[in-house]
């Protein structure tokens, strides 16, 4: 049927993704106990970003969606990042 265009992801792949996600969670917790100073936040956010990417592209099937939708999703994150950065142009220099 032409209507169902969603790609089928095998169980095995999903389990693999979960294992990576759990591993990343483990890392992010253990990194916190090492004192890296200001780097900790960066590392934590990078790992969270990687996890989000995995969830978006695999669990949410974004990997197999149209280019347009992928661009739109990226755009939303970029927009939020821009708003955050611009707000800090105020707070950082006050």
């Amino acid at each position: 049927m032409a209507n169902n265009t969603t790609h089928t992801i095998e169980y095995k792949t999903l389990v693999k993704i979960l294992l990576i996600l759990l591993f990343l969670t483990f890392i992010t917790i253990s990194v916190t106990s090492i004192h890296l100073g200001a780097l900790t936040v960066t590392v934590a956010l990078l790992i969270a970003g990687a996890k989000a990417y995995l969830v978006l592209s695999n669990f949410m099937h974004l990997k197999y969606e149209s280019l347009l939708l992928r661009i739109l999703v990226a755009m939303v994150f970029v927009l939020f990042a821009l708003i955050l950065v611009i707000t800090f142009i105020d707070y950082a220099f006050r």
Binding site: L79, I86, D90, Y91, A92, F93
Partner: peptide, 22 residues
Amino acid sequence: GFLVWGHHMYTSGMSDQARWFF
């Protein structure tokens, strides 16, 4: 239009950098 909101706040105590940027 998403990125210019600060021009409503020039006199409310924002940093100078933010003011010229907006």
